[in-house]
Design a protein around this nucleic acid. Structure first.
Ligand SMILES: [Mn+2]
Ligand SMILES: [Mn+2]
Ligand SMILES: [Mn+2]
Ligand SMILES: [Mn+2]
Lengths: 223, 223
DNA sequence: ATCCTATTTTAGATGATCCTAAAATTATTT
DNA sequence: AAATAATTTTAGGATCATCTAAAATAGGAT
């Protein structure tokens, strides 16, 4: 029996815990959770207990939380909705990629399986959101494209710009200013030993310099 | 200074009170409110006090609530969103008119003025929702089309079907079955004295019988 | 092994929203 | 006008989500 529906807050915590889990191998600390959600550790502690009671994660005092398969399933449902709505906002309502996150944070909690199916169809079953992140399918499968930070490339190597790591408005707007768009081919012309900044070439046309920090926040395809 | 944003619950109460206000001349009772929202009178009593504190309505103990101009403005904002989303669901996502209300009840609370402006534009600035109800503009003006219940028409008179009064799924589905669609021209062929049922003609083509109850829930234009 | 510090949990409070049961008020009938 | 019925409010309590401050624990440094 699936328990009663999660509240918006529970969904937000679960999603945060999911995001903190992927990649990392150890349990997620309550501090990390409260940090991410802009709440206090005490609140995260309470919530983790609640989610554990609902079997969405394992939790032992002082040992952090481990999201369960059931928890992952629910988190991916919310993430699927978030990303589909982001596509809608950009593709259909002409929002810029730096404007959609806040609104999607709200829309991701709308409950209607049929709505999401129809939205998916309306959008042409997109595989990635405006930031290049994969959209989980109805069953919670996430397609992973092999990728690595641009900063890992060496002189002469190139890759396609697949996704951003940092999705902050300021970073996305800076990329706009530099005319660096998702899908562009990026070739490393020169990597500066001293500070890891690089000269890159976009689509074999436009050359520009970017800092190591920028480079580390751009994911490119592994060719 | 506009006070801090309303909660979903406050918005729902305010909208209910607005709907109960229009047409009626006297104050809205807490019983009527709790009835409409499927809560208890005690809860409505609490909420009415809260909304009065926020100047969204006048309220005197035992005397019911009167929504204020400020309250009306906020209620209409929510109603505008509700109806725009209903249009979106029907026009873009191919929902039937009987399926959209529940989902719009959720979507109406999404906060983003820009989103609503863009949605309005995307939909081509619709003037009415799928049930024929007018969509308030950004300033809260509601265009009213002169209309009356079909049951008020006499033999030989006709009008265009502008809106439904009852928006329940069962009524809307029944109209679908009878092939009675918004915009259709309806002519009264014969009104039965005995039970006020009538024989009508749709678009000068199809004749059928409808009960007085059905007729009283169809609004037609006053020619 | 002990101490110190950083992390984490608990205790206790608050506000929002809801409820049930009892009290107060208003409306209707005799 | 008094009695009765219906409506409405209050009292008191539950749950959720949050906080602050204090207590407990863990992990690293001496
Ligand atoms: Mn986002
Ligand atoms: Mn995204
Ligand atoms: Mn509706
Ligand atoms: Mn409607």
């Amino acid at each position: 029996m699936p328990q009663t529906e999660l509240s918006f807050t529970e969904e937000n915590y679960l999603k945060a815990i999911y995001h903190l889990s992927v990649g990392g191998t150890q349990a997620v600390s309550t501090n990390a959770i409260s940090d991410r959600l802009q709440t206090k550790p005490a609140s995260a502690s309470d919530m983790v207990k609640r989610l554990a009671r609902k079997k969405l994660l394992q939790y032992e005092k002082y040992q952090g939380a481990n999201i369960s398969p059931e928890g992952i399933k629910l988190a991916l449902k919310v993430i699927r909705k978030h990303r589909l709505w982001e596509v809608f906002l950009v593709e259909k309502l002409n929002f810029n990629w730096d404007e959609v996150h806040e609104i999607a944070e709200q829309l991701e909690h709308i409950r209607s399986p049929l709505l999401i199916r129809r939205l998916d169809e309306f959008l042409g079953f997109p595989k990635h959101d405006p930031h290049g992140d994969p959209i989980p399918d109805e069953n919670g499968s996430v397609s992973t494209r092999p990728r690595k930070p641009l900063s890992d490339l060496h002189d002469g190597e190139s890759g396609d710009f697949l996704a951003v790591k940092d999705t902050s408005s300021s970073f996305l707007q800076y990329l706009d200013k530099l005319d660096i768009q998702l899908g562009a081919n990026i070739r490393v012309m020169e990597k500066v030993e001293f500070d890891d900044s690089m000269k890159i070439c976009l689509n074999d046309k436009k050359e520009l310099y970017i800092s190591a920090q920028v480079a580390s926040n751009l994911y490119v395809s592994k060719n």
